[in-house]
């Protein structure tokens, strides 16, 4: 099975390590993937308003391109995943969006949401399997107490994202166990980091990020992992810098011995 890898803009610029470690790990795990040729920016944020069509079109283009190649879209950045999956759902279920998008794009064959958007973590859980990852680990991260930071975009809205239990997710904890470390469950792992308001209302972003870190430290976490460059930024810049924050792919690459 071939996965159409969608890195997104941030992974080509500020979050290069999220991308690089992700690729190396996939190779080490023997996953067949290929970067989508000529992918476009997903739009960074899902346009919630029902009357927005144009802002969703670049996502539709990417999805339609992947359809040509087996239809499995592999995402890594949480925001890209959220946008692509929700736009895909619109193309599957929203008659108005379908019609307008197809009229505008005039593809050879109309796109009706046939592709499937899979997050890297879902790939690890559902296609590779945490047991297989555990067996492939050469440098287990023994004794490291890691808090999983989910944020919002992977989990909500659950009716579309269907990623994990939105209030008690376990997928990243299971991942942490698979690489030999100790997961720390804390209450604010699915609370917002402050997101895009960190530019316009930095105080609010500071409050939110530091609350996440305080909750994690209260439960004994020594490190946080995330899949989102924006969360990473907020936790590092606005969280008070009291805890190490890493992309989960870096830990995976380390555990698999491919982090150099």
């Amino acid at each position: 099975m071939k996965f159409n890898y969608y890195p997104g803009c941030t992974l080509k610029t500020k979050a290069k390590e999220l991308d690089a470690f992700g690729r190396k790990s996939l190779e080490a795990l023997g996953v067949d993937f290929e970067e989508i040729k000529e992918w476009q920016c997903c739009g960074a944020v899902y346009p919630v308003a029902k009357d927005e069509v144009a802002t969703k079109l670049s996502a539709v283009r990417t999805l339609a391109m992947a359809k040509e190649n087996g239809g499995k879209v592999l995402t890594l950045c949480s925001a890209c995943h959220n946008v692509l999956k929700r736009v895909n759902n619109d193309m599957k279920t929203d008659e108005n969006m379908r019609l307008k998008a197809n009229n505008y794009l005039a593809l050879e064959e109309p796109y009706l949401g046939e592709s499937e958007v899979i997050h890297y973590l879902e790939l690890l859980r559902d296609y590779v399997g945490f047991d297989k990852i555990k067996a492939a680990v050469v440098n287990p991260l023994k004794g490291v107490k890691i808090g999983a930071y989910y944020g919002c975009l992977l989990l909500r809205p659950n009716s579309t994202m269907a990623f994990d239990n939105p209030e008690n997710p376990t997928i990243i904890e299971d991942f942490i166990k698979a690489i030999g470390a100790t997961p720390v469950v804390y209450a604010f792992r699915n609370e917002c980091c402050g997101a895009y308001v960190s530019t316009t209302n930095n105080e609010l972003a500071k409050k939110k990020s530091s609350a996440v870190i305080a909750s994690a430290k209260d439960e004994g976490a020594e490190m946080l992992v995330t899949a989102c460059p924006l969360c990473m930024y907020n936790l590092r810049q606005n969280g008070g810098g009291e805890i190490e924050v890493k992309y989960f792919t870096e830990l995976l690459a380390t555990a698999l011995g491919v982090n150099n």
Binding site: N165, P166, E167, N168, V185, A187
Partner: peptide, 11 residues
Amino acid sequence: LENFNEYGYST
């Protein structure tokens, strides 16, 4: 109560 984990019953 598995659908109501916001109240922390299972945690």
